[in-house]
Design a protein around this nucleic acid. Sequence first.
DNA 1: CGAGTTTGACCCGCGC
DNA 2: GCGCGGGTCAAACTCG
Length: 398
Amino acid sequence: MEINLSLRIEREESQDFEMQELDDNHFAEKEEASMAAIGEVEDGAPLDVSLQDNHNTGELSVLEMEMNRMKEENKVLRKVVEKTMQDYYDLQMKFAVVQQNNRQKDPQIFLSLNGDKQQAIQRGSNIAKNLQKHGSSPLEDEENEEELGLSLRLRTGSGERERKEEENHETPNLASMKNKFHESHLSAITGSHVVPSPNRKARVSVRARCQTATMNDGCQWRKYGQKIAKGNPCPRAYYRCTAAPGCPVRKQVQRCQEDMSILITTYEGTHNHPLPFGATAMAATASASAAAAESSFTLLDSSNPALSNGIPSFTRASLLHQNPHFINHQRAPSPAAFPWMPSKLSPSSNGGNVTAIASDPKFRVAVAAAITSLINKETQTTQPNASSSSSIGAGREL
DNA sequence: CGAGTTTGACCCGCGC
DNA sequence: GCGCGGGTCAAACTCG
């Protein structure tokens, strides 16, 4: 199974734009008010002292009113940001569950963020269509990824073959792309021949336009090796997660040969410790993938008491690994709980690319669209369940 | 001095 | 069996 999450991020973040617009309005209004005050002073040619006092106090009151209004708006904006984060986290949890349920049905999931919300929603409906047609072709993906700001690919297939496919994907040429196209369609037609291996590890490949050496994903990494991979002059760097001792998660970072501005980061394994909120976005998919691999064995037993509340225990366990607050609050952890979290949950904060993505309303729309299409498909093929309907609700709410 | 990076050596799987 | 290539190790080095 391969799930492809592609996140398209426009350079101009809408929220930033809105904030900017808001600020501009404030400045315009403020300027207007002060200009009006000045105008009054200028119009009133004889400058009486008491009159000037009146003007000063009037200006002060106008400014105070402005400040109060700005405070109110700041509060509202803060609430919006908080709600966005909370919604995203909830969706993330639900997505992991849904993805687990669909692991054998859907070859690819494609999320995109590009342009306005309407486009995102339209793309969301395209997702559903693509899903019904065994997912978008690799060629389309390739074309799409050319436009990408960031793409997230999740795979749970067995090691070497997929690794080679990934190599092909990273250094595409016409022949290999043709082969891949043919291969994927063949496998889609004849059914998946990827036999789950007990030793396989979940791999999540993220492609992002990034000028820095590595993408800031909220985690703590230590470099342990570097290699020049064949066919790519750019060295591949190997990182190990050092956020907790013994954490098995590793990542490989390599620049795309075709476009040096694209950074390909491949994550492997599941974190054995709580993650900063930003990092959970990627870890959730990796963990869900790992859970899917595990489920091949644990779910074989229908009498397995692991299932409760519609959430398989391993899924909940993996969620708990990432966030111990899941049971108690089912929402984003407070910064106090995780001191390394960025204290300001604003899209423009330096908490990492993922944090910015997570708080992007377009991302929410795209996630909602993808989840909705997934669930729609699921309800068509299987019986509806409680988590699905709640997810739909969440999706619609977004 | 501890943590992180660099880099050559080594291990292992795979194809021929 | 051998060579190749990807992945990892570990000593040396750097940096704060």
